[in-house]
């Protein structure tokens, strides 16, 4: 088992990074890896409530974030500073997350066995 960190850094819908990052995270969890998700910069926008991906011709992968706990993925972190920069707060997000600062993110990147950036 490895500690795999998936870093979401890009906004959803205009590129498949978010969707393919989530696919990878779910697969890793179903293969019994210790998975954590960290959302920074516009990657945070993946977690907004009330999105309608079908309006962009895409599948609604956003709803899939809600099933992460069923895969035992509970380490979901959002960069506090970036959330504030986007003028958003925790109530705007679809799922329960833990807000952490840049220093804590550095520590998590250092602790992981592998980090994949999407």
């Amino acid at each position: 088992m490895k500690k795999i960190t998936v870093l979401f850094t890009r906004s959803p819908h205009s590129t498949p990074h978010g969707r393919e990052g989530l696919d990878f995270a779910m697969l890793s969890a179903s293969f019994d890896q210790q998975v954590s998700l960290i959302f920074i910069d516009e990657g945070i926008l993946n977690l907004l409530k009330d999105q309608q991906p079908m309006l962009t011709g895409n599948r609604d992968y956003i709803a899939t974030f809600k099933v992460l706990p069923l895969y035992d993925v509970e380490d979901i972190f959002v960069c506090q500073q970036d959330l504030a920069l986007l003028q958003l707060n925790q109530q705007d997000l679809l799922i329960d997350v833990e807000l952490i600062n840049d220093h804590a993110i550095q520590q998590k990147l250092a602790d992981a066995d592998e980090v994949l950036v999407f």
């Binding site: 850094t9 920074i40 910069d41 993110i105 550095q106 990147l109 250092a110």
Partner: peptide
């Protein structure tokens, strides 16, 4: 894009 800027923020 901001790849380098992001990297520098989280690099030790």
């Amino acid at each position: 894009g901001n790849r380098l800027a992001l990297c520098l923020r989280f690099m030790r």
